[in-house]
């Protein structure tokens, strides 16, 4: 089993390595192979909305940079973790621009899911999604928005299960570990 952490921390503010380490240790304990990508260390350009990944080179973004590696890792994982500072209720721009480039993983063709129109899957299997947002200062409305966004993205990317949790930067390691443990259980991580 494979898990991928997409760390969307921003180079100019608090590091999210504390969270990343806890997730890695818990998943290793459950027998997972873990890969962590710190997105600001990678060369990832913005999606330019050209649909080249659907209509010119189906399944592959036409921009040749590290986003291709990210997409490859995502689709070959069983669990993907979006780890990000919460910015106004959303993901950091680092994480957002990497996710925009993942539309190569779905199909241009439409289907109806959850009573809405969505793009159909390209692959047979997609990873479960966990969203972990870290606040410098907690805000209830933004926490709800974050949860909602993770859910919407789970629909976009056909995740078989999803879960999310927000933290504040000052929470103790023990509290963080307990909550992440619960999140992992929600997407089926089993320690036995």
């Amino acid at each position: 089993m494979k898990a991928l952490i997409l760390n969307g921390e921003r180079s100019f503010e608090y590091s999210l390595s504390k969270f990343s380490k806890i997730i890695e240790d818990l998943l290793k304990g459950a027998g997972y192979q873990i890969k962590t990508i710190i997105l600001h260390e990678k060369n990832i350009g913005n999606c330019i909305g050209c649909f080249g990944c659907w209509l010119k080179k189906p399944g592959i973004c036409i921009i040749e940079d590290d986003a291709q590696e990210v997409a490859r890792e995502v689709i070959n994982s069983d669990i993907i973790i979006y780890l990000t500072p919460v910015t106004f209720g959303g993901y950091s721009s680092q994480l957002k621009k990497a996710l925009d480039r993942n539309i190569s993983l779905i199909s241009p063709f439409f289907g109806t899911y959850h009573g809405e129109v969505h793009h159909r899957p390209r692959y047979k299997k997609y990873p479960s999604l966990i969203g972990i947002g870290v606040f410098s200062e907690y805000n209830k409305d933004q926490a709800e928005l974050f949860t909602n966004l993770v859910e919407r993205n789970a629909y976009n990317f056909h995740s078989p299960s999803h879960a999310s949790q927000v933290f504040t930067a000052g929470e103790s390691l023990q509290e963080i570990e307990l909550k992440i443990n619960s999140l992992l259980s929600k997407v089926g991580v089993n320690y036995e």
Partner: peptide, 17 residues
């Protein structure tokens, strides 16, 4: 703005920040 995977495009997010 256009809708990119249920939110704003990455460049708009960067501007907002």
């Amino acid at each position: 703005l256009p809708l990119y995977i249920h939110a704003m495009p990455g460049i708009v997010m960067k501007f907002i920040e």
